[in-house]
């Protein structure tokens, strides 16, 4: 028999502690982003001036642009690669070394990122790759692939092959089967995979820091640089803006996923 969770003694307090532990730091950051004072921890009055400062900081805007460019291109490449891998590994007939191939695709999840980052750095310098943006895109694509792969594979595995067989049976060529049946039905998985890849790329610090060069600093690397010079309320404003953007994206993703689920 299931117990009514609400009857446990001290539950309210526990819940309060839990959410406080999780969200208090974030709440402090958001609160102090509106602080008028130059010192981060002394409240003197409400002001939006740090938002103004952040948005007119050209180095910051450049970092955001670099991060978005890298994340968008890496997400597209990683999702496409992951989609093809998932189709072969889940739907392919007589695929040799299926298990091994899956492990290889997912390997970046298991290896410590610092190891991969160093390896990538050495490889790029050995082959003489100098374009900073290209280096970031290639490296990000590589570690984003498993994040895009897992939701797509899960969706494909959860879908009976009957639909695809029915389409073939109704005279659809392999490409038409993919375009009109497979892709529409696994779209929520593809979308979830792309979102994950995008977030992982935006959030990445270790690899990006390793590959950072003059004109190509990503947002996390830039923020890290700011902190080294001492924290300012501008940092709080930047953080608050990132949180707002993340919430917006997560909301869109969730609502799309639920709509997709409602259909099938």
């Amino acid at each position: 028999m299931r117990q009514d969770v609400r009857r446990y003694p001290g539950l309210g307090l526990l819940v309060l502690l839990f959410f406080g532990w999780l969200y208090l730091p974030i709440a402090v950051v958001i609160g102090f982003s509106f602080n008028e004072n130059r010192l981060v921890s002394v409240w003197t009055g409400f002001s939006l001036k740090w938002y103004g400062a952040a948005l007119s900081n050209s180095a910051l805007v450049d970092a955001v642009r670099t991060s978005l460019t890298v994340a968008l291109i890496a997400t597209a490449l990683a999702t496409l690669t992951a989609l093809m891998a998932a189709l072969v590994l889940v739907r392919g007939r007589d695929v040799r070394a299926r298990r091994l191939s899956e492990v290889v695709v997912n390997l970046p999840l298991l290896l410590p990122e610092i190891v991969v980052a160093v390896a990538v750095l050495i490889l790029f310098s050995q082959i003489g790759l100098t374009n900073g943006l290209l280096k970031l895109i290639l490296a990000h694509t590589a570690f984003c692939i498993p994040f895009a792969f897992l939701p797509i594979r899960a969706r494909l595995q959860g879908m009976t092959p009957d639909f695809e067989e029915a389409a073939q049976d109704l005279y659809a060529s392999p490409w038409v089967v993919f375009r009109r049946v497979t892709l529409p039905l696994i779209l929520p998985g593809v979308f979830a995979g792309a979102m994950l890849a995008f977030v992982m790329s935006m959030d990445d610090f270790i690899t990006s820091n390793m590959l950072a060069s003059g004109g190509n600093t990503t947002l996390p690397v830039y923020i890290f640089g700011l902190i080294k010079q001492g924290t300012t309320p501008e940092l709080n404003a930047i953080s608050t803006l990132i949180i707002a953007a993340s919430l917006l994206l997560a909301t869109i993703a969730l609502s799309l996923t639920f709509r997709g689920r409602g259909k099938s």
């Binding site: 067989e165 029915a166 049946v181 529409p184 039905l185 099938s264």
Partner: peptide, 9 residues
């Protein structure tokens, strides 16, 4: 098909 396999979308 036994499951009918009507395209849900």
């Amino acid at each position: 098909f036994q499951s009918y396999a009507l395209f849900p979308h």
